[in-house]
Design a protein around this nucleic acid. Sequence first.
DNA 1: TCAAATGATTCACCTATGTTAAGAAAACAG
DNA 2: CTGTTTTCTTAACATAGGTGAATCATTTGA
Lengths: 191, 191
Amino acid sequence: MEDLIRKNMERTLGEEISEEMLSDLKALSFEKNYDKKEYLVETGQACNYQFFILEGACYSYYLNEKGNKNVIQLAIEEYWITDAPSYFRETAAVSTIETLEPTRALMIHKKDFEKLCFSHQLFDRFFRILLQNALASLHTRIAKTISEDADHRYKGFSKRYPHFIQRIPQYLIASYLGIKPQSLSRIRKNL
Amino acid sequence: MEDLIRKNMERTLGEEISEEMLSDLKALSFEKNYDKKEYLVETGQACNYQFFILEGACYSYYLNEKGNKNVIQLAIEEYWITDAPSYFRETAAVSTIETLEPTRALMIHKKDFEKLCFSHQLFDRFFRILLQNALASLHTRIAKTISEDADHRYKGFSKRYPHFIQRIPQYLIASYLGIKPQSLSRIRKNL
DNA sequence: TCAAATGATTCACCTATGTTAAGAAAACAG
DNA sequence: CTGTTTTCTTAACATAGGTGAATCATTTGA
């Protein structure tokens, strides 16, 4: 289904987008296929693209000094993912983004992103709304991370993101929740 | 100094803004003074404004079931603060925003925010950049919260936000870091 | 100017989660 | 189908940080 992106934009904006806008988007973006375990972004390099997942699954993580992965984002079909610091400022990526399955993604270069926003106010609005939503979600995530115990966080996560529970390895969900895989296993044992 | 807001916008955008833009902003925003311990936003009510702090200090927090405050944002001069879920979507505020000192803030109603973005592309851009920066910071905060121990988080925080260490009560900083005031006190004792 | 409220510290004890290590189960590759 | 790698589980033990209670210090405001 080629028009996942159109659907995503129209749902986010609450209005239909013109054919012209869509064709400008297609002209300034492209699709790419990745195998399982390939990198979309690597720490330390410039992240020049944001990705809209058309098919597949991936995740982003930070590595700390001890070499542990700390999962920042999970993404499957219809999710947007990128290294925000690098894409939006002019810095090196702080996270790595890796596929979990063979993945097909729509990619938008940051220059083209600026062009799109400049040429259609509706793009500006669309991306502003995406950012607003992301911000609201992160506020909620922070609040839960600092206030709830691991058990509650896992229950809340499973309820809110059942599609992730089915597709993402448990040890990555554990990391996303800020706990160790063994602890998540223990939590699941007690229902 | 009346033009804190201009300074903030120009620094963020990396370019000067026109007199016209500035006067449109002034026309669609207003200033308000708050006493210490007043609410800018209350949980459950619509949050129709975003606030740019001209003078003073405030913080936003979620209350969990047990009635504990969980600090989401801290803000002093030149910081923007609002309840993102409520301001950007059409929902009730999930957080409370309260002053810590007598505070003077510039307020922008969400309707006027839309108008400003619509009438000057540069406003769109400005707010998109604000959001992008906020997002990048939250990614970092999440990563640190789930990967570092309390001691490291406090050290990192003091280094990055020395101005908050001086002005914000310790028990709120503890909450921001996801720990109890007693623990922060224990951490500080060991330098 | 002093009582009351607020914020910080300390301590003894407790608990959730981390650590290490091992083995079972599932997924994958040849 | 079979061996290898990845993911998940279990358990014994260790520890960072939570809890509750008491005390001290500081700020506030009547």
